[in-house]
Amino acid sequence: MAVDEGLKSELQKQGIFVLTFEQLYNWGRKSSIWPLQFGLACCAIEMIASAAARYDLARFGAEVFRATPRQADLMIVAGTVTKKMAPLVVCLYNQMPEPKYCIAMGACAISGGPFKDGYNVLKGIDRYIPVDVHIPGCPPRPEALIHAIMTLQRKIANQHLEKENRLRWYDKNAETEFPIPSYGDHDLQPPANREVWQPPRDYRDVTLDEVKKA
């Protein structure tokens, strides 16, 4: 049902709002995202600074940082994820109830960051869990984190309850719990979750013939 924009704004001035159920649902969810208190390393201090008095994060709906994953709907992975910590991160993500989101804050959480050459560093948390927003920076400024929350809010506003791009929660076939890796001899087993992460393709790899065929 499409309502004319002019009519909508006229009605709004009178105090009558015309929305779809989806818009109302998404507005409620995006305006009160409660993050999980999960700082791993240096980015955690910038996360606390963005929740502190100067860059107040509470005005964007992230009112309280919950201590338990059962009550949170956003996990901000702030800091380097090591191979020793990775199974616990995945376990915590599994414990969060749907609909849940994940922000990878800082270069270390995106791809291993400056510590990429490490024997104990996991090269990005998106090897095991799906990440919604990546924030580059080392550490990203508190304003960058606020921008990421706003980006996430826009993403939530565009999510549908049915058809494609629907919420994972409503999709009967989607996975909500991800397998937890185990500690191996020198590395985690498995080194990455193939359903969640594929190594990026290099566009220089593709020749013109292949493009023509596709």
């Binding site: 791993l40 390393a41 800091g79 090591t82 910590m85």
Partner: peptide, 26 residues
């Protein structure tokens, strides 16, 4: 402990003397 072991010491062995100054920040 060890949940944040980022092998800072091994990285420094591969870099020049000044190269590990930004890592000491962390």
């Amino acid at each position: 402990m060890g949940y944040l072991h980022r092998n800072h010491e091994q990285l420094a062995e591969r870099m020049a003397w000044l190269g590990s100054m930004p890592y000491t920040d962390r």
